[in-house]
């Protein structure tokens, strides 16, 4: 039994969907950010699987940039969460329904 490209793609799809559902059903801002990380990782897995399949380096470069963007996203995202928590004392997204306070 060999592991084909499809195995990796299905696994990545499953991870992506779990992250997506997490964004849908969770209300905690931090957890939602973590679910986004999950989705980014699923995409990385797809890129790497294809890069390895086609023996091309381009996929790796994409993953490199995705990781960079993820780092930037986390820095800004968590700063926003901290600012929100300071102003409203909650990170529940349903309670954060005003743009200004």
């Amino acid at each position: 039994m060999t592991i084909t490209l499809s195995h990796y793609l299905v696994l990545a799809a499953a991870l992506f969907v779990i992250g997506l559902v997490g964004v849908f059903i969770r209300r905690n801002a931090i957890t939602i950010l973590m679910c986004i990380e999950l989705m980014l990782n699923a995409v990385n897995l797809t890129f790497i699987a294809f890069a390895s399949h086609m023996n091309a380096v381009d996929g790796l470069i994409f993953v490199f940039f995705v990781i960079t963007v993820a780092a930037a996203e986390v820095a800004v995202g968590l700063a926003i969460v901290i600012a929100l928590f300071r102003n409203r004392d909650t990170v529940n997204l349903d309670e954060l329904n005003l743009m200004r306070w």
Binding site: T2, I3, T4, L5, S6, Y8, L9, V10, A13, A14, F16, V17, I18, L20, V21, F24, A49, S52, H53, N55
Partner: peptide, 22 residues
């Protein structure tokens, strides 16, 4: 989410072909 998984998985299995990675 489940629907998306089914669609993507179907495409991945049907289209990606049998070649092993690497």
């Amino acid at each position: 989410g489940g629907l998306l998984l089914v669609v993507v998985a179907a495409v991945a299995i049907r289209q990606a072909g049998p070649g092993a990675p690497g």
